[in-house]
Each structure stands twice: as structure tokens, then as C-alpha cells.
């Protein structure tokens, strides 16, 4: 027995939907509860280039590719990355970011609803690797702006200096006492970092960044501002 409850489009809700709603976010659409903006996109863009912004990055799908053969398969598909670093790639029509965390572990952040997930899974499992879907398990937070390092050094003991932590490089380390997997990702010439944190701790980290960042002029921004800043190179 079923009713329309089985057929209405499911509403996908970000880990940061709670704090974003309290800050006045407008969602991407009715079934995608990620902040598109907070009411003033131009102010959001300006803050990113003058101070620092924090953005909930999504929705994205995430695939954990493990096993010794995994990296080889991804390289053959043209979507691998150098060990310890990230790379942008496209599989079919789907853009993605590849994070080579360890010789036997890569994390793929893929545009939502792409067909890529199936292709990757089939290829990897054929090579005796495993693919696990972590699309909901990790939340993505982008920290972008000239003050990004000043903010992050208050919660992170990794040396983030521009000449010591290269563009694309990955580190797995605590920020504010929670484990974060992050990479340097400048947006054009604006300093920036991509953070991946366990979903259940994302709201805490987001609020900690805003609280500590107040003195640095940090504000939250939505996807539209990030897209505008990236000039379409969000991926």
C-alpha cells in the first residue's frame, strides 16, 4: 500500500540548514535546502574580496574510493589527483573534485545527480576496490577571503602560509577540536580553503567560524556569491 508520500520529491537538507535558516538564508529551491544567498548577493561578494566569507558548499555527492586498485582506476578514468592534493576533473558531463587522501583512499566530490557515481562505482568494484557513498556524511564549508588565514590560524595548528601550503594541497587535522579534511583552494586570486567536516559537527564548526570571525569581518554567503566569484569555475 502506498500513497503520494512515496512519490513526492524528497527534500534534501544540508547539515547547515538550521544555522543558515536562523541567519535568513534563501534556499536554492524548495527541495534543496542549501543557502543560495542571504538576501544581498553583491554584499556577499564584496565581503569575500575585502574580508572573509564562509559558505556551505553543496549539494554535492561524495564517494569514498578505497582499495589498492582504486587510484589506478581513477587515473584511467582521468579523474585522479596527485597524492596529498586535489584536482578538478570532468567525467562525462559531470564536474567533480578529486581528493587523493592516501595511496589507498580517494574522496570524490561530485556534482549532485550526476551519472558519474554509477560509472565510477562499476569501474572501481571491477578492480576489486570499494566505493562507499558519503554524500550526506560530510559537509563542505568554503572559507574565502584575504582574512581566511587569520581566521583559520585561530583554530588550526597546521602551517597554512601561502608559501608553505601550496594550492590544492590537502591536510587532515583538527580545527576547533573537530577533525577536518581540508585543502587550499584560492578563488581566482582570493585566498581560500575547502573544508570537509563530519556532518554532525558541521553546524558547530560553522557557528564557531562566524563567532571567531566576527572580529575579522567574516559573514556567511550562499552558492550564488561563490559561483559569481569563481566566474563559473566552482568545480
Amino acid at each position: 500500500m502506498s500513497t503520494t508520500l512515496t512519490t513526492t520529491t524528497p527534500i534534501r537538507r544540508s547539515a547547515l540548514a538550521g544555522p543558515a535558516a536562523r541567519l535568513g538564508a534563501n534556499w536554492i529551491d524548495e527541495t534543496t535546502e542549501w543557502a543560495a544567498d542571504y538576501g544581498d548577493v553583491s554584499a556577499e561578494i564584496a565581503a569575500a574580496t575585502s574580508a572573509c566569507v564562509v559558505a556551505d558548499w553543496g549539494p554535492t555527492d561524495k564517494l569514498a574510493v578505497k582499495g589498492p586498485g582504486g587510484r589506478r582506476v581513477l587515473d584511467e578514468l582521468g579523474i585522479g589527483a596527485p597524492l596529498g592534493a586535489t584536482a578538478s576533473a570532468v567525467l562525462g558531463e559531470t564536474p567533480l573534485r578529486s581528493w587523493a587522501l592516501a595511496p589507498d583512499e580517494t574522496l570524490l566530490i561530485v556534482a549532485a545527480d550526476g551519472a558519474a557515481a554509477g560509472t565510477v562505482t562499476a569501474a572501481v568494484e571491477a578492480a576489486a576496490g570499494t566505493v562507499t557513498n558519503l554524500s550526506s556524511g560530510l559537509a563542505g564549508i568554503r572559507v574565502v577571503g584575504p582574512a581566511a588565514r587569520e581566521l583559520l590560524i585561530e583554530i588550526c595548528a597546521v602551517d597554512l602560509a601561502a608559501d608553505r601550503f601550496a594550492e590544492g594541497r590537502i591536510a587532515m587535522a583538527p580545527m576547533g577540536n573537530v577533525r577536518v579534511t581540508f585543502a587550499r583552494r584560492d578563488v581566482r586570486d582570493v585566498p581560500g580553503f575547502e573544508l570537509l567536516v563530519a556532518r554532525d559537527q558541521a553546524a558547530y564548526l560553522f557557528e564557531a567560524l562566524l563567532h571567531l570571525g566576527a572580529i575579522h569581518g567574516v559573514r556567511p554567503v550562499g552558492q550564488r556569491a561563490i559561483d559569481a566569484l569563481s566566474g563559473g569555475t566552482r568545480w
Binding site: R13, A15, G18, S136, E154, I155, G176, N177, V178, R199, D200, Q201, A203, Y204, A208, H211, L212
Partner: peptide, 10 residues
């Protein structure tokens, strides 16, 4: 600063 992690369910 008071960085005391809190975990929330979905």
C-alpha cells in the same frame, strides 16, 4: 575561545 564541539542529528 570556548571551542566545545556539539553534535547534532539530521
Amino acid at each position: 575561545p570556548h571551542l566545545d564541539p556539539v553534535r547534532y542529528t539530521a
